[in-house]
């Protein structure tokens, strides 16, 4: 128990006017999700301290904001958020900081016409699933960070160019990998519809068993329909997600098996949370590489992996 964190002490300190002097350099940038914080950290290098509130393995649906997180947000020189209601739990804090011009919602910098609509003023927030969209969103974030440390702008631009070149290469790899899947079986079957941007970018048909909310539940008619689809199209694999129970997907496998068609689990895909921190799958490139390669291989396509690290980790 760290007593120094107790608000009473903070109050006493405040009464005596003991404000901590802020160090001049480097600026602190807090990203809400690791899909933003991880690439930004690579690009910023020593120019800024980039942290993510939600670690690589944390699911935004389960996230509980704590007082410590609020202190980090308050102390940040810049907050980079995704927006489009992804950070519902932090909404009020972000809105308050946004009034001070300290928050940039990077997914909201992308034109509505390039996003998939959810409601009249929100779009599907899972924008990182399409690396070309995410590169554009990150570009705006990089520019804002660079503005905080003008001396570093050139170095950051160089690192950003290199990183985005890698993302473009990943995009080309994903395009080729998904296109190598036979047209009949080019179908991504998951528990819920979280891969809309991925599906649109790479032309793979999406079939989610249930709605996207945590409370939503599947119906038997939908299960039977999907079993028939798997059998008729001879789809060899279905996929589980790290943040959703695998029961529905396993029921599909059993149903198809009863109809004489063997389906297997093609892999565990990362939807909202990323892989373990410090591992390749805990990076945005590694996460997308893992998803793409697992899907392509399991559905009968050709995919060697975008990076050799995929096989090592």
């Amino acid at each position: 128990m760290r007593l120094g964190r107790a608000p009473w002490l903070a109050m006493i300190l405040a009464v005596f006017g003991a404000f901590s002097a802020r160090a001049a350099v480097p600026p602190t940038v807090v990203a809400t999700i690791a899909q933003i914080g991880q690439p930004l950290g690579v690009i910023a290098g020593d120019c800024a301290r980039v942290e993510s509130l939600l670690g690589e393995g944390v699911d935004p649906h389960l996230y509980q904001p704590t007082r410590a997180d609020m202190k980090r947000l308050l102390a940040a020189d810049l907050v980079l958020a995704n927006g489009h209601n992804l950070e519902a739990g932090l909404h009020r804090a972000l809105a308050a900081l946004a009034e001070r011009g300290k928050v940039l919602y990077i997914a909201e910098t992308i034109g509505q016409e390039r996003l998939l609509p959810w409601s009249d003023h929100h779009s599907d927030p899972h924008v990182w699933m399409d690396p070309t969209l995410w590169r554009d969103a990150l570009t705006v974030g990089v520019a804002r960070v660079a503005a905080l440390v003008p001396a570093c702008a050139q170095a950051m631009t160089a690192r950003a160019m290199a990183f985005f070149a890698e993302m473009d290469a990943l995009d080309a790899y994903a395009k080729a990998a998904i296109a190598s899947i036979p047209a009949d079986t080019r179908m991504l079957v998951t528990a819920h519809d979280a891969f809309a941007y991925f599906g649109r970018r790479y032309g793979i048909e999406l079939q989610g068993v249930q709605g996207i909310s945590t409370e939503s539940e599947a119906g038997l008619a939908r299960i039977e329909e999907m079993v028939r689809l798997l059998v008729d199209r001879k789809v060899p694999a279905v996929f589980v997600e790290t943040s959703v129970s695998d029961r529905l997907v396993r029921a599909l496998i059993e149903g198809a098996g009863a109809a004489g068609h063997t389906v297997r689990i093609g892999g565990t895909l990362y939807s909202d949370a990323m892989g373990a921190p410090g591992s390749y799958r805990g990076t945005i490139i590694g996460m997308l590489d893992h998803n793409t390669t697992s899907i392509a291989r399991a559905l009968g396509g050709q995919a060697t992996g975008f990076s050799p690290q995929l096989a090592k980790d």
């Binding site: 670690g55 944390v58 996230y63 921190p277």
Partner: peptide
């Protein structure tokens, strides 16, 4: 959620 571990989603 403060621990650096995967699998908690």
């Amino acid at each position: 959620q403060t621990l650096p571990i995967a699998g908690q989603a």
